[in-house]
Each structure stands twice: as structure tokens, then as C-alpha cells.
């Protein structure tokens, strides 16, 4: 699609873009992936630690330990976000700190803190899900479609 768009540009702009791209600093994809792997893996490792802790010392099974683990991770995220540490981790780790549920928490909490100056109702309240909103919206909608298809298939005896 990007190529199609380029073709509509005047040749001067096309030449310039090529000229510019040659000099553009490329994203270090491999290095970024390694960092994302290590940090993302580490966050999941911590998650596993927390969930094992809940299984051993509290009344939770493997099934039910997921929720308190998530809540604990998001609590830790709140502290890291509030003290201005999470955005630095994010610059280093990229997807490594964005993809785990802590990244979801960071998106919500950072928006909440940022819009505090606009008041708690219209600032915090309405902007809190500015970044994380699409995740909830399309998570719910795609889950609806998947569950709908699956339920119908079961009903019709296909699976």
C-alpha cells in the first residue's frame, strides 16, 4: 500500500524520499528484538514468580492465580510509572515492556497521571483509556466474533 501511495507523488518528491531514506538512521531491529526478548521474558518470569507465590502461600490454583498476578503486576507498574521509571524502561525495551500486561497498565496509568491537570472527571476520567482504549474495544469485538462463530459451529455440530 505504501508503494502505491508513493507512485502518486510527483517524481521530485519520490527522488527526495529515496535520497532521504539513504541517510535515515535505520532502527536497530535485531538489537531491539534482543532487548525486547530479554525484558519481556524477564517481566513474564516475574509474573511466574508472583503466581507461584500465590499458589504456594495463598488459596489460589494455577487457574485462579492469574488474576491476582495481573493485579500485582499492574500495582508495581503504577509505582514505576509514577516515579518516572517505566518510560525509561520502555525506551530501552520497546515491545518488551509494552506487550506484557504491565504495558497495558502503563498506558492507562500514564494517561491518568498526565491529564490530572485537566481535572479528575474530564481530565483523568475521559483520557485514561486514550491509549489503552483500542485494546479493549477490539479485544472485545474480536472475542465476540470468535466466540460467536465458535458457539454457532458447536450448535450446528460442526465441532
Amino acid at each position: 500500500m505504501a508503494d502505491k501511495k508513493k507512485k502518486n507523488l510527483p517524481p521530485e518528491a519520490q527522488n527526495y524520499q529515496a535520497f532521504q531514506e539513504e541517510r535515515e538512521v535505520k532502527r536497530p531491529v535485531l538489537l531491539n528484538c534482543i532487548k525486547a526478548f530479554l525484558v519481556g521474558g524477564f517481566i513474564c518470569f516475574i509474573g511466574q514468580l508472583i503466581s507461584t507465590f500465590y499458589i504456594y502461600y495463598f488459596h489460589f490454583t494455577e487457574q485462579t492465580a492469574g488474576n491476582p498476578t495481573t493485579a500485582t503486576l499492574i500495582f508495581i507498574t503504577m509505582l514505576l510509572t509514577g516515579f518516572g521509571i517505566y518510560d525509561r524502561i520502555g525506551q530501552f525495551a520497546g515491545a518488551g515492556s509494552a506487550v506484557p500486561v504491565t504495558g497495558f497498565g502503563n498506558a492507562v496509568i500514564s494517561s491518568a497521571i498526565e491529564y490530572k491537570t485537566e481535572g479528575f472527571i474530564l481530565g483523568v476520567g475521559s483520557n485514561m483509556l486514550k491509549l489503552a482504549g483500542p485494546v479493549i474495544v477490539y479485544g472485545v469485538f474480536s472475542a465476540f466474533l470468535v466466540a460467536l462463530v465458535k458457539t454457532l459451529l458447536i450448535k450446528w455440530g460442526v465441532i
Binding site: V25, K26, R27, N32, T81, D87, G90, G103, N106, E114
Partner: peptide, 17 residues
């Protein structure tokens, strides 16, 4: 940052450009 990009505490990765 707030107007053009993300909340200041959001951990988005900025590209080298």
C-alpha cells in the same frame, strides 16, 4: 510530548529518527 506524542510517563520507544 502530551500534544503530539504520548503522555510523558508512557513507555513508548522512540525511534532513532
Amino acid at each position: 510530548e502530551k500534544q503530539f506524542r504520548y503522555p510523558t510517563e508512557y513507555g513508548g520507544q522512540k525511534p532513532p529518527t
